[in-house]
Nucleic acid binder design. Structure first.
Lengths: 216, 216, 216, 216
DNA sequence: CATGAATGAGTTTTCATTCAT
DNA sequence: CATGAATGAAAACTCATTCAT
């Protein structure tokens, strides 16, 4: 079980093996319940070597988060072609996102659940990734506004809020798709487009829902 | 710090104090990092008393989840008046939800993060609450469909996904509103209505977003 | 379960109920594993009452030992009629012993296992009972010697050892009879008489087994 | 006190040191009253090392029982020469037995008292050793019967009972010799031979003690 | 007389982390 | 480079024992 015990691998390779093992264990057991012993064993190395390369449990977890965050944002970036219409870009991006999280459930568990559950400094690491994705969505919303011949002046504030909502919905759906038997990445993406884009589309056409007047 | 050390309380009162302390500690430290020592100290009692009344860390956590899940669903229920139009009910429900989670951030952390992060039997407890909320949303969708003179039959599966997305978006917005200067819970709710209801509204009118044809 | 909760019993009665419960729990769980909680519950009283009457776990255990030791020696005494020949007295005593220990297995566990396993002051209590039995055997040896017209003066030391061996053999046989299908308590007693009495009988007739000469 | 604190021993050596310490503590305090802390300290190592090598208190105790049971049976086996007459073999075996138990009183306490007092799985471990010794004695009784030109047909059942009684007597005497000042192993063996062999010898010559007729 | 409320002190066990080779 | 040996610190949980009513 675990990586075969091969001797004298170059350091970079060994590190990746350790991170592979760590992501799997952290994703399945959770940050606190994961033990360095188990990670070292799954990586096929001795515990002191893990410490030599990655310093501490905290640093190891941070390294996992960074690697997986980069992989996820890269996957989304690679799935989108900049020239296309905004809804197409959003659709492509969502599909890439759901596909990646479905293929790497442990990584997604690390990013979405574990990192957020265990406070700083981990939450900060994920926040950076999230900010990138929110920025990407924000750009898309701006593009969509332009395409709809609408004044760019959906207030910046409002755009940021919408992007947050969209990303939050996507995150939740990804976790749900991973744990719900029979739910595919494609279905998740479709559901979200129905939910979000059609709502955003209305906004773009100036159809705004307004709160009722008679409140306390 | 913590509850004032009052002696010889009746059991029911003490139990609530312990749950108060436990929710706070679990919400801030996380389930695993929370120590029974710290919870007992915050509750102003000795550890053995916590065990005498609540049995084990697992049982204590479960009791927290149950109490807070009941409080949250009750708050939402109390915020909604059944006779009103669907969008008004949704608006009221969301506001009650945002208000409650904002006032009880530790409880929300327990329900949303901690319980889901630490597997069974906790996830199951939250699933019950989630099912109630999904049922509420499902009823609203049915009401909205009737109001739009349409067939309400969205597949159960689809409704579950939408509900998941809605809660994810809400949670994201709540966090965003809490950390972004100048963003209020009310604005967050408005943004979410724009995002969600107009999307749902389109669905109700048969305006479904369709994926592009030219895919791999 | 346990004694029915009756109020306002006279102290002596309550004490016996407590001792009944304690013997049962100590016999089944062992001295250390027995908990005062469980004993109080089985006795149908509150824990502080146990402490009020019996002082401490140690005192409670000691009281158990004393009561059960007295009961056992009394049972043996009652089974024997002094005027009869020595072998008949031994046979009667053994049968009374086997019968009592079989009927009160928890008491026997307390006396034979628990008390000896947990050092002073308990071992001392049992030693007193053991001394009585040794005295009984010693008397029998004297009677047998008289019957055989011989000098009864086996050294005290030797008699103590013989008594020890006799009780050990009896206990072993009792356990063996209990777990071997087809072996009755009566047969066990017969075997023991064959084993022991005939050996003692030889001793009385001056037929002593002598160790070989050629030793290292 | 305890083993000198030598660092970096090979695992096999450390394990023996730990077992040495454990036998001593278990033998003196009893299984339940023994604390892993004390054992570790006496072994001259830290508690986690004990757990790393021996897993748990239960496993540690089991390892003690196995080691000491093997040592005891080996000592008896080594003390007996198969060709000699039965009484000589019995005498030699008993002397080896008493000598070993006298030299290793804690080990004998573990085997005779502690293991039997604390139920499964410990009792089972000792039962295996006991069965070996009973089998050895049973063989001897058969040999003795042949030597006495007696039909081999002392019923098998009877032989088994006699062996049980003999072993039980020996066990009890060993404990007694260990705790009685001035009682030597040699004297214990002599007493037991007088008690048992002469009885057995009578049996072998057909002199059977018969129970009285006038019973209830 | 009797008890519900409460705890100090101790138990087994685990884990991240570091030497010495 | 790599590891077997080792531990300080803390966690969950239990129990005999005592107040205050």
């Amino acid at each position: 079980m675990g990586a075969v015990k091969t001797k004298r691998m170059p350091r970079a390779v060994r590190e990746q093996q350790m991170l592979d093992a760590a992501v799997r264990i952290f994703g399945q057991r959770g940050y606190m319940a994961a033990s360095m012993d188990e990670i070292a064993e799954l990586a096929g190395v001795s515990k002191p070597l893990v410490y030599l390369y990655l310093n501490s449990k905290e640093d190891l977890f941070t390294a996992c988060i960074r690697r997986e965050a980069a992989a996820l944002t890269e996957a989304v970036r690679a799935g989108v072609r900049p020239g296309l219409p905004a809804d197409r870009q959003l659709w492509d991006g969502l599909r890439a996102f759901f596909a990646h999280t479905a293929e790497h459930p442990d990584a997604w568990s690390v990013l979405h659940l574990q990192a957020r559950t265990h406070g700083e400094p981990f939450a900060g690491e994920v926040a950076a990734m999230r900010a990138e994705i929110v920025a990407f969505v924000t750009r898309l919303v701006a593009v969509a506004a332009r395409e709809a011949h609408r004044d760019p002046d959906l207030p910046e504030h409002e755009v940021a809020g919408l992007s947050e909502a969209l990303v939050g919905a996507a995150e939740s759906l990804a976790a749900w798709a991973n744990t719900t038997p029979g739910a595919t990445a494609r279905q998740a993406a479709t559901t979200l487009m129905n939910f979000a884009w059609s709502g955003l589309g209305n906004l773009m056409r100036g159809q705004v829902w307004t709160p009722p007047m008679d409140e306390a």
